[in-house]
Amino acid sequence: MIVVSAVLIGVVYVVLNSFIREPHRRKFNAVMIAGAGAAYLSGGGLGGWEFVFTAAVTYCAYRGLESWAFIGIGWLLHTAWDLVHHLRGEPIVPFADHSSLGCAICDPVIAVWCLTGGRSVVSRIPRKPAGDR
């Protein structure tokens, strides 16, 4: 169940972001990965490595202001950090033991979308011509 719900969260994230027009969509996602990069700072349990990770993702977020690829790389880094936390650290949501695992399943869905250019998926839905309504 955790796999299905985590993948669905990633898909919902992509669909909702598809309603944001470019270039705002890319900038919004750069801000989102910057925030995700700092998610474990308040108690991730890995000491100074939390700051090193946050700095790496902050760099990706900054470069992501101009490049979808860096946003995707940031999400993949976050996936790896989620796995480290699931195995050795504290969960991203303190009261949900498997939240880091769920995040590690969700994040690659977002990363793949970003690495393919963060295009709108709702604009690809065919619409009826105005006369057919």
Score class of each variant (00 low, 15 high):
Met1Gly: 04
Met1Thr: 11
Met1Cys: 07
Val3Ala: 14
Ala6Met: 05
Val7Tyr: 10
Leu8Gly: 14
Gly10Ile: 09
Val12His: 04
Val12Asn: 08
Val14Phe: 11
Asn17Asp: 06
Asn17Glu: 10
Phe19Glu: 08
Ile20Pro: 01
Pro23His: 13
Arg25Phe: 06
Arg25Ala: 14
Arg25Pro: 03
Phe28Arg: 05
Ala30Ser: 12
Val31Lys: 10
Ile33Met: 13
Ala36Trp: 13
Ala38Cys: 03
Leu41Pro: 09
Ser42Leu: 08
Gly44Lys: 04
Phe51Arg: 02
Val52Ala: 15
Ala56Thr: 06
Ala56Glu: 00
Ala61Trp: 00
Trp68Asn: 01
Ala69Gly: 10
Phe70Met: 00
Phe70Glu: 12
Ile71His: 02
Ile71Leu: 02
Gly74Asn: 10
His78Met: 08
His78Gln: 15
Thr79Ser: 03
Asp82Ser: 14
Leu83Gly: 07
Leu83Pro: 02
Leu83Tyr: 12
Arg88Lys: 07
Gly89Tyr: 06
Ile92Gly: 07
Pro94Ile: 11
His98Leu: 14
His98Asn: 03
Ser100Arg: 09
Ile105Ala: 03
Val109Asn: 09
Ala111Glu: 04
Val112Leu: 13
Arg119Lys: 15
Val122Met: 07
Ile125Leu: 15
Lys128Met: 11
Lys128Glu: 12
Gly131Ala: 15
